[in-house]
Simulated assay, not measured.
Amino acid sequence: MTSTVIAERRTSIGAQRNPASQDAILKAAADILRETGLSGFSIEAVARRAHAGKPTIYRWWSSRAALLLDVYHDQKHVEPVPDTGTIESDLFAFVTALFDYWRDSEAGSIFRFVIAEAQSDATTSAALRAYMAERIDQTAELVRRARRRGEISADVDPELTIELLAGFAWSRLLTGRLDMEPQRLHQLIRQMVWGLKSRGNCGGDR
């Protein structure tokens, strides 16, 4: 394939994302983060590395934080719905993997930055809300599955349950307390699951 053909494939088509250009931009952004961290990350640096125009990047990602959120999601390898056989073990596995991911890579710093930017930038806030809504709906399958198994009350709201757990996780991330002892995390999850069971008679979905 000639360089001319490659260049044509990377051409932006209005507001629609060209897959080849998007991949090149996300790869360039990830490479810069690995090499320099957040301090060296900018739209200008990504544009140079990806051989893409700044207008193209800003048309697809309204801010640096919005691009970072896509890089964060693109690299995330945490299993959103682990299936260990019980909801207590499922939630423990999910939170443990999430804390490890945040602590052992640039991911924690990226997500903290996005959360901070969302407090003052409306476009970043909208991107974060959309991202979290999708993630909460996906991970809520853990709770739906537990309801079907009869482990918890049938009137438990799956999305609200995961949002409560996400609030705890965010608190730990934002205050630099990801090194939680497994026994303490087990205790928290156990108390949470006990509350889900205590809301009336347990039973599967109707």
Score class of each variant (00 low, 15 high):
1 M>D: 09
1 M>N: 12
2 T>M: 13
2 T>F: 13
2 T>P: 11
5 V>I: 15
6 I>T: 07
6 I>V: 15
7 A>L: 13
9 R>I: 02
12 S>E: 04
14 G>N: 03
14 G>S: 05
17 R>A: 02
18 N>V: 00
20 A>Q: 07
20 A>G: 08
21 S>M: 03
21 S>P: 01
22 Q>I: 05
25 I>W: 00
26 L>Q: 02
26 L>S: 05
27 K>S: 06
28 A>I: 04
28 A>C: 13
28 A>S: 01
29 A>Q: 00
29 A>T: 01
33 L>K: 06
35 E>R: 04
37 G>C: 03
40 G>D: 01
40 G>E: 01
42 S>P: 05
43 I>L: 07
46 V>F: 04
46 V>L: 07
47 A>H: 03
47 A>W: 05
49 R>Y: 03
51 H>Y: 14
55 P>Y: 14
57 I>C: 06
58 Y>K: 09
58 Y>A: 11
60 W>D: 07
62 S>H: 12
64 R>N: 10
66 A>C: 13
67 L>Y: 01
70 D>W: 06
72 Y>C: 08
74 D>C: 10
78 V>M: 02
79 E>L: 02
79 E>A: 12
80 P>F: 00
80 P>C: 10
80 P>K: 07
82 P>C: 05
82 P>V: 02
84 T>S: 05
85 G>E: 01
86 T>D: 01
87 I>V: 07
88 E>V: 00
88 E>T: 07
89 S>R: 09
89 S>V: 09
90 D>E: 04
93 A>V: 11
94 F>M: 03
99 F>G: 12
99 F>R: 10
100 D>P: 01
100 D>C: 03
102 W>R: 06
102 W>P: 01
103 R>C: 06
106 E>F: 11
107 A>D: 06
108 G>V: 02
111 F>I: 10
112 R>I: 11
115 I>D: 13
117 E>F: 02
118 A>M: 13
118 A>K: 04
118 A>W: 12
120 S>H: 14
120 S>N: 14
121 D>C: 09
121 D>T: 10
122 A>V: 11
124 T>M: 07
126 A>N: 04
128 L>P: 02
130 A>D: 15
132 M>A: 08
133 A>G: 14
134 E>F: 10
135 R>T: 03
138 Q>S: 14
140 A>Y: 08
141 E>H: 11
142 L>T: 10
143 V>E: 12
144 R>G: 07
145 R>D: 12
147 R>S: 00
148 R>W: 07
149 R>T: 02
149 R>Y: 00
149 R>N: 11
152 I>A: 14
153 S>E: 13
155 D>N: 15
156 V>I: 05
157 D>T: 15
158 P>A: 15
158 P>L: 09
160 L>R: 06
162 I>H: 04
165 L>T: 10
167 G>M: 09
167 G>P: 05
168 F>K: 09
168 F>A: 04
169 A>H: 00
169 A>F: 12
169 A>N: 15
169 A>L: 08
171 S>Q: 09
171 S>C: 14
171 S>A: 11
176 G>S: 04
180 M>F: 08
183 Q>L: 05
184 R>W: 15
184 R>A: 15
184 R>N: 15
185 L>W: 01
187 Q>M: 12
187 Q>G: 14
188 L>P: 05
193 V>M: 00
198 S>G: 12
199 R>V: 12
199 R>K: 11
201 N>C: 12
202 C>F: 08
202 C>A: 14
203 G>C: 08
203 G>W: 06
203 G>N: 03
206 R>Y: 13
